[in-house]
Write a protein that binds this DNA or RNA. Sequence first.
DNA 1: GTCTTTACAAAATCGAGCCTTGTGTAAAGC
DNA 2: GCTTTACACAAGGCTCGATTTTGTAAAGAC
Lengths: 179, 179
Amino acid sequence: MTDLTRSLLDAAAALLAAHGSRGLRMVDVATRAGVSRQTVYNEFGNKETLVRAVALDKTDQFLAAVRDRLASAEDPLEGLHAAMVFVFTEAFRDPLTKSVFTGANAEDMLPLVTTRGHEILTASATVFASHLTTHWPDVPEDRRGLVAETAVRLAISHLLTPSGDAPAAVVAVTRALLA
Amino acid sequence: MTDLTRSLLDAAAALLAAHGSRGLRMVDVATRAGVSRQTVYNEFGNKETLVRAVALDKTDQFLAAVRDRLASAEDPLEGLHAAMVFVFTEAFRDPLTKSVFTGANAEDMLPLVTTRGHEILTASATVFASHLTTHWPDVPEDRRGLVAETAVRLAISHLLTPSGDAPAAVVAVTRALLA
DNA sequence: GTCTTTACAAAATCGAGCCTTGTGTAAAGC
DNA sequence: GCTTTACACAAGGCTCGATTTTGTAAAGAC
């Protein structure tokens, strides 16, 4: 990825978080990145593609960070905990990430969510299943997929409709998984 | 509940499912129920109250039916299965019920969903927790709440973003709970 | 007494026309 | 490879009546 692409994605992400996809203007993306509007078109073709690229980028960054947290500790349980803490703090901190994963603010963020719900779900579940494979041999192979999907579904559910604060959500998901 | 109230709720529910809350007209509710528009106002005061009453009614009907299924068999596992089958067939059959529980079609159904997510969650979890208490003594008391909430969250998650068809969702939720 | 009919004010919605803004494309220049 | 300028065109607002719908009120019918 070129520096230009990177700065355009960052600029677009910031504006997207502030004004929604409806209120996003290509001129503003260009100005914020210090380039001309035409350059944005050379790079992404059109607005829809740009918005989708931001969503893709956010997803990748977020899942990479989750993967890091999962692998951050020797003890797999500790890794799981670190990952869950990250998921909830980050999703509450960054409204754009939250929108991508939960479909919140469907009003402003429609293009981020449309039909990608299932895609996001399986991508996230794959990350988690891979962690189970390498760090959690107790989980039998034939249950790995289900456990991973359940973890992701529960996490997303707690993002969408929280029962309590972020730490409470971490506890709830973790305990549910360890049943 | 009077017969009048009942038929007004049914008429409103049908029209709501067909045209959304935005396209719902009080005259049509009246006509469909065979009464005058004024009678609708005498009964519900205004449109917003009527729509909320329909949502409340749908919730009650649905949870009562779930409760029946849970208690339908001697074997608690069989009851759980029957309830899950009902949840998924019914939610896919009746778009209005699905909207109430998942917030789908937020466009047309806004008043049904607004801020009621948590309320619906706890109401449903309570129904399930009560089933655990009476039919499933294996679950220790201090885990009952968590198990119930997890069951509901997973079910709603599968309604919102299905991995497969309805039977597959039933299997996924059931197996996740029995882990 | 409960529901209907009729009447009416206030608010929301709609459609047409117009103007402004933003998108997307193209070409010439640095 | 990026900028500047220019332009066609579609989308979004805005205004202004006309219409529809909401919500209230009163008088009458079963």
